[in-house]
C-alpha cells in the first residue's frame, strides 16, 4: 500500500516538473512577444512599412527597403531550395535503404547543425569575395542553404506518410514508379510539404548572420540582385546597437514586423498540419 502511494506521489511530482518546464518555455515566448509588441506597436504604421530609412534626427522614415529585401531574399532562397530538397526527399523516400540515402540523411543532419554564421562565411568566401560585391543573390543563396535541411528532412517525413498500400494500389493499376511519385505520393503529401516549406521560410526570415555577410545592407530601394540589399534582421541589428533613440525605436518596430510574420507562418503551418492530419 505504501509502495503504491509512493509511486503515485512520484508520478505527481514528475508531472508537476513537466508542466513547470513546459510553462517556462511558454512564459519566455510570451514575454518576448509582450515586450516586442509593447515597444514596437507605437512605431509601426503605413509610412513605417513603406518608407526608406531616415537619417538620424529626421522624423519619419521606415523599413520599406528592408522589408522588400527580406521578402526577396527569402523568396529567392525558397526558390532555390524547394525543388532541390523535394527532389532529394523523393530520392530518400524511394530508396530508403540505399547507402547514398544514409549519407544524404547524415549530411543533411550535419548541415542543420552548422551555425548560420558559418553558412554566411561560406557564401561570403565563395561568392562575395569572388564577384567583389555583396548582393541579394548571395543572400538568397545563403538562406537557401539554411532552409535546405529543414525542407529535406520534413519532406521525407511527409512523403513517408503516404502508405505503402496506396503506392501498391497505384503500381497495381499499371502506374510506373515515376507516375506513382508524381500522381500519388507528391499530391498526397502536398499539404505536409507546404508546411515544411513554411517552417523553413520562417526560420530563414529571422536569420541575421547569413544575410549580414552576404547581402550586407543598404539605405536605398532595391534595384538589382547584384547590389547590397537591406533586410529586416540586419536592420534590427544595426538600429538596436546604435546610440540614437529614434533608431532604437525603429528597431523595435522592425522586430515586431518580423516576429509577427514568423509567428503567422508558424501558426498557419501548425493549423494546416492539424487539419490535414484530421482528414487522414
Amino acid at each position: 500500500m505504501t509502495n503504491r502511494r509512493k509511486r503515485k506521489a512520484l508520478g505527481l511530482l514528475f508531472e508537476a516538473l513537466c508542466v513547470l518546464a513546459a510553462s517556462i518555455a511558454i512564459v519566455v515566448l510570451a514575454l518576448i512577444l509582450y515586450y516586442v509588441f509593447r515597444r514596437g506597436i507605437g512605431v509601426v504604421g503605413f509610412v513605417f512599412l513603406t518608407s526608406l530609412p531616415a537619417p538620424v534626427g529626421v522624423a519619419g522614415g521606415g523599413i520599406g527597403n528592408a522589408l522588400i529585401g527580406s521578402l526577396l531574399m527569402v523568396g529567392l532562397g525558397a526558390l532555390i531550395a524547394v525543388p532541390v530538397c523535394i527532389a532529394a526527399a523523393v530520392f530518400l523516400d524511394q530508396n530508403p535503404a540505399s547507402k547514398l540515402s544514409a549519407f544524404v540523411r547524415f549530411a543533411t543532419r550535419v548541415l542543420s547543425g552548422v551555425p548560420s554564421m558559418v553558412i554566411g562565411l561560406f557564401v561570403f568566401g565563395q561568392l562575395v569575395l569572388r564577384t567583389g560585391n555583396y548582393s541579394a543573390l548571395a543572400g538568397g543563396i545563403a538562406l537557401s542553404i539554411v532552409m535546405a535541411p529543414v525542407i529535406t528532412l520534413s519532406a521525407e517525413e511527409m512523403l513517408r506518410l503516404v502508405p505503402s498500400s496506396q503506392r501498391e494500389a497505384s503500381m497495381a493499376l499499371g502506374a510506373s514508379k515515376q507516375q506513382t511519385v508524381f500522381r500519388l505520393v507528391l499530391p498526397g503529401a502536398a499539404g505536409g510539404l507546404i508546411v515544411g516549406v513554411m517552417l523553413a521560410v520562417a526560420l530563414a526570415a529571422g536569420q541575421t548572420a547569413p544575410v549580414l555577410l552576404t547581402a550586407l545592407t543598404s539605405r536605398f530601394w532595391l534595384e538589382s540582385l547584384q547590389q547590397p540589399t537591406a533586410s529586416l534582421p540586419v536592420l534590427i541589428y544595426h538600429y538596436a546597437t546604435s546610440p540614437f533613440a529614434d533608431w532604437q525605436a525603429h528597431a523595435w518596430g522592425a522586430a515586431l514586423v518580423l516576429v509577427t510574420a514568423i509567428l503567422v507562418l508558424n501558426v498557419t503551418a501548425q493549423l494546416s498540419l492539424g487539419l490535414s492530419n484530421r482528414r487522414r
Partner: peptide
Amino acid sequence: VGMIFQKPSPFPH
C-alpha cells in the same frame, strides 16, 4: 491484371 487489396486503398487525395 486488376488487383484488390485487403485494405481498401482509394487514392485519398
